[in-house]
Design a binder for these strands. Structure first.
Lengths: 197, 197
DNA sequence: GAAAAAAAATGAACTAGTTTAAGACTTTTA
DNA sequence: TAAAAGTCTTAAACTAGTTCATTTTTTTTC
C-alpha cells in the first residue's frame, strides 16, 4: 500500500514502539483528521476546551501561557515528528490555559477525544504505544523541571542549543527567551557572550 | 480474600484506573517485592543501575541530584500512595544520576524490570494502567517545568504549601529549599515573610 | 539528659537576571 | 518599495536570590 507523506511520518512514529498490520494502519489513519494552519494563526487559545491531540507533519508551533503581566512563557516548540496539545484539557474537558500558535505554515494530524478512546477499543496495542510515548516524555519533562530550578539561564540556553540544534535556527530570539524563562534583553546578552567564546 | 494493609493500598492505587479480578490481583501482588528501609539510608545512589520502580506504603523519601558544587536539587518527595524511582535508568539500564534517601523509616513495594515486562504479558490491562498513570504524572511535570521558569521562589513555595499541605510538615526547611530551587537561607527569609502576613 | 550535630535565623556584601528606555536592524504588509 | 511593525542590541538603575559568616534553636545520639 502506498501512503501519503504525512501518513508515512506518523506511521513511522508509531512504529518506534509498536508494530501494526496493514489493516490496523488503515484503521488508525482513518481515525485521524488532517489540519492545515497558517503562520501566526492559533490552533488553541486560553479558555478553549480542546478536543484534539496533534502530531506535526510539517512546520513549527509554539505552546505557551501568558502570566498575569501578559508575558509569554513557552512550554515547547513543536516541529515535525512531535506530538502536541494540552493533555490536561484534553483529558478533563476543562478550559485550557495554553495558546498554541503556528510560527510557520504547518500541517498536522489530529486525533479527537472520541477517536482516541475508540482507538484503544479497536486496537488495544495503542495502550502500549501511548504508555511508552508518555513514559519517554515524562523522562524529559522530569529533567526539564529539575533544570529549570537548578541551572542558570546560560546553562539552559547551551543545553537547548545542544539538544535541539535544528530548532534554534527556526525560532526568534524572543521566543527562545520565553522558553528559557528570561527576558529578551537578557537572552540577547547571553547569546552575545556565548558566541564571543 | 483478606489482604495486608500495604497490599490494599497498592490495589486501591491501581483501581483508580483499571479493574482487576481476584486472580489478577493475586498474580499482580506476587510480582511485587516488599522493602523496608531505615531513615537516612539510601534506596538508590548516583551511579547505580536501578532495576526497580517503587510504590510507597509508609514513610517518606526524597529524590535528588547533586550539582557540580555538591548542592542537592530535590526532584520529588515520595510519601504514601506515590510511585518513585528513576524511570530513565529503569528503562535504559544506564547508571542513574539520582539519590533516593528515606527521611523517615519507610516501607515500599518494588517491581523489578523483569516483572514489569512480565506484567504486561500476563495482564495486558496494565498497559492501560501505566498509560494513565504516566499521562497524569506528565500533566503535573509539564506544569512544574513551566512554573520552575516562570514563577518566583515565593510563588513556588506558596503553590507547594497549597498543593501538598501534608508534606510541608514532614520535611525540613532545608530540603524544601532544595525542592523549590533556592538556598536554605533564602527559604528561611521567604517563610518568615509569608508567615508574617 | 548532656554533648554533638544539624537546622534555622539574621545580616552584609555580592551576582544573576529585570526593567525601562532608546536607537539600529529586519521582516511584514499594503 | 515605502511605511509600519516587530526584533535585536546596549546601557543604567534596580530587585530577586546567593554567599559567607555568626548566633540561636532543634534534633540526634550515646
Amino acid at each position: 500500500m502506498l501512503y501519503k507523506e504525512s501518513h508515512i511520518l506518523i506511521l513511522n512514529n508509531v512504529s518506534k514502539f509498536i508494530d501494526l498490520t496493514e489493516l490496523e494502519k488503515q484503521k488508525y489513519l482513518s481515525l485521524l483528521t488532517k489540519i492545515s494552519i497558517k503562520r501566526k494563526s492559533f490552533l488553541m487559545q486560553a479558555g478553549d476546551i480542546t478536543s484534539y491531540e496533534y502530531f506535526i507533519t510539517k512546520g513549527c508551533l509554539k505552546v505557551y501561557t501568558l502570566d498575569d503581566d501578559g508575558a509569554p512563557h513557552i512550554s515547547m516548540f513543536a516541529v515535525e515528528d512531535y506530538w502536541t496539545g494540552d493533555m490536561a484539557s484534553f483529558m478533563t474537558k476543562e478550559p485550557t490555559r495554553y495558546f498554541i500558535k503556528a510560527t510557520e505554515d504547518s500541517e498536522l494530524l489530529g486525533i479527537s477525544r472520541a477517536n482516541y478512546e475508540l482507538l484503544f477499543q479497536e486496537i488495544p496495542k495503542f495502550e502500549r504505544f501511548y504508555r511508552m510515548l508518555y513514559q519517554k516524555s515524562l523522562i524529559s519533562y522530569i529533567r526539564r523541571s529539575n533544570h529549570g530550578i537548578s541551572l542558570t539561564a546560560e546553562e539552559r540556553y547551551i543545553e537547548f542549543k545542544t539538544k535541539y540544534p535544528n530548532i534554534v535556527n527556526r525560532i526568534t530570539q524572543k521566543d527562545l527567551a520565553g522558553y528559557i524563562g528570561i527576558t529578551p534583553e537578557f537572552m540577547s546578552k547571553i547569546i552575545t557572550k556565548v558566541n564571543r567564546r
